[in-house]
Nucleic acid binder design. Structure first.
Length: 270
DNA sequence: CTAAGGACCTGTCGGC
DNA sequence: TGCCGACAGGTCCTTA
């Protein structure tokens, strides 16, 4: 799935197709996502008009005057706009149908995603404890450094902790640490404020680049119009075990950290 | 409180 | 060709 850039790309892709549209139906074919789709969601959406689409962390918020639908894409989810006469395929779990015979269709083979309703989504239990947005000004080296003071976990696990900073998934964690020259095995509380500042800049740059490129496509993500993103070719370490480092030619290493594959250059990252 | 590991699911790929 | 295990972009929950 979708790391933050893909979610942002999805938000941008669907917004012009859904904002100001009136919903005529919500078709639910499979309610067993990560959480059971609540029974009242149809009632909350039908005959209502979408005001805006926002993003908090990797959650998409479909905003109405009386509350918000919360959508998460999990590992394998995607959203796209369809014509209502397009037959549903396997794993197309729900459609939000609009008055003009288009629909927002959600597909998620692994069903790790979510479709929820909240009158006040930012206070929802899944969102209330989330940390800083990486692309906003309050995400600084100073902030990261202070938060890391009592943390003995690796820096890679630290930046993937959504209670600290949101939106840094497994791909971009490796990519950001490579760009910052920091070894992913290093303990979070053993990194200077100066290097934390470099890491923050690296994260912002990597995520912005990926958003500009339209998001990374590996297997499951398609932009809402169905065409593939193309950031994959810009990855410098992720998925490149044994391939030469783009900077020094030394073979890229792979190690499992916190149950996730981690890629890095032993010569360039300390 | 922090940290570690399991859990949730299906599809795909490599090896034999 | 067929089967089997390993692995995949997330993140919550339980246990220590």
């Amino acid at each position: 799935m979708p790391e933050l850039p893909e979610v942002e790309t999805t938000k941008i892709g669907i917004t012009p197709w859904v904002v100001n549209k009136e919903i005529t139906d919500v078709i639910i074919r499979e309610k067993r996502l990560r959480y059971k789709i609540p029974g009242n969601i149809k009632k909350q959406l039908i005959n209502k008009r979408i005001i805006s689409v926002k993003r908090r962390a990797k959650y998409l918020l479909i905003n109405f005057s009386h509350g918000s639908a919360i959508i998460h894409l999990g590992m394998s989810g995607s959203l796209r706009i369809i014509k209502t006469n397009e037959p549903a395929r396997k794993h197309d779990h729900f459609d939000i149908v609009f008055i003009d015979d288009t629909a927002l269709r959600y597909r998620d083979p692994r069903r790790f995603g979510a479709f929820l309703w909240s009158e006040n989504p930012l206070s929802h239990r899944l969102l209330i404890k989330l940390g800083q947005e990486p692309l906003q000004e309050k995400f600084t080296g100073e902030y990261l450094w202070k938060e890391a003071k009592n943390r003995r976990i690796t820096i890679k696990q630290f930046i993937m902790n959504a209670n600290i900073v949101v939106g840094v998934g497994n791909i971009y964690a490796s990519e950001s640490l490579f760009l910052a020259g920091i070894n992913p095995n290093r303990k979070a509380n053993r990194i200077s404020k100066k290097r934390m500042e470099g890491l923050v800049q690296a994260i912002k740059l990597i995520l912005n680049d990926a958003i500009k490129a339209g998001g990374t496509t590996l297997q499951d993500f398609y932009m809402s119009d169905g065409s593939a993103g193309y950031f994959k070719q810009k990855l410098k370490v992720y998925g490149r075990e044994k391939h030469p480092c783009v900077s020094c030619k030394f073979p890229i290493s792979m190690k499992v950290i916190g149950q996730r594959s981690t890629f890095y250059c032993k010569k360039c990252q300390s």
